[in-house]
Write a protein that binds this DNA or RNA. Structure first.
Lengths: 138, 138
DNA sequence: TCTACGTATTGCATTTTGCAAGTTAATTAG
DNA sequence: CTAATTAACTTGCAAAATGCAATACGTAGA
């Protein structure tokens, strides 16, 4: 598992945040949950960007250890587990929204998707509230 | 230099943001500039977290290539260079502030610094505006 | 020219990542 | 009851990124 215990602890809040989710995959998993309504390991594996299975397990364990997601058995399918966000995880919503807004303003590629950007531009506070409430958006 | 050209392009704005600054060091460098008022290579090297020289060069080049920082010669010391944020870079201010707020709410360690957190809590919009304007905060 | 300073570059060991294949446990089909 | 299937991992190994120390390059001042 990704060990970040001895990662030069500074009291800086930016560094604390980056220690928690400052890598290529962690926020993408949180995106899958918060924006995509995904809940299971196999759903996360289907993500467009193609996360490797060992990395996914590693990050899910770290997210659980950090109190950002909680893992429970799926009552409707006992070979499956459900990952859902804690309050600490849902509180990441404003960060995701600001990233969406920044990309909306600066991603000039033709492939850039505007769906989320428009929602965030139209009613930022409402969008954050929707995400925080755990309602699926797409 | 960190190559991210072939990094599974998805149109997702979250993925775009993470492709740009989703690693351990890039946002720390931007923090040094935006919150710390640092401008030169050697000032960045003094950062609390201790970035390696090769990584620092790599990230500065990538930030320049991405149009987030601009590199100019220091008119007062012609063997030094100044790195300053472009608009695209200054627009990262809201993301940094949301990270500060999140950490402020969830970092329970005794070492956690509250200075930035208090500023952000007291007047978030004003704090963002100050950062975006390029005024030093600490 | 000699020396210092600021900014890099290089070499190499360590760590992390990516990918493919294999494993375990719960469920369903026959 | 057994075999196949599904879901969630685990393992092994090559490739890439990182960390660290040493070295080099481009001003500039003495």
């Amino acid at each position: 598992m990704k060990q970040k215990m001895d990662k030069r602890p500074s009291g800086c809040p930016i560094a604390f945040g980056l220690d928690t989710f400052g890598d290529r995959w962690t926020l993408l998993i949180i995106r899958e949950i918060m924006l995509g309504g995904k809940r299971t390991y196999s759903e996360f594996l289907e993500a467009e960007e193609g996360i490797a299975t060992n990395i996914l397990v590693d990050r899910l364990k770290q997210l659980e250890a950090d109190g950002i997601v909680e893992k429970t058995r799926d009552p409707e399918n006992r070979r499956s587990f459900l990952y859902h966000l804690t309050k600490k995880g849902r509180d990441l919503a404003p960060i995701l929204v600001e990233i969406i807004l920044w990309s909306g303003a600066h991603d000039d590629r033709p492939v850039a998707s505007r769906v989320m950007v428009e929602k965030a531009l139209k009613d930022r506070a409402g969008f954050v509230a929707t995400l925080r409430a755990g309602k699926t958006v797409r």
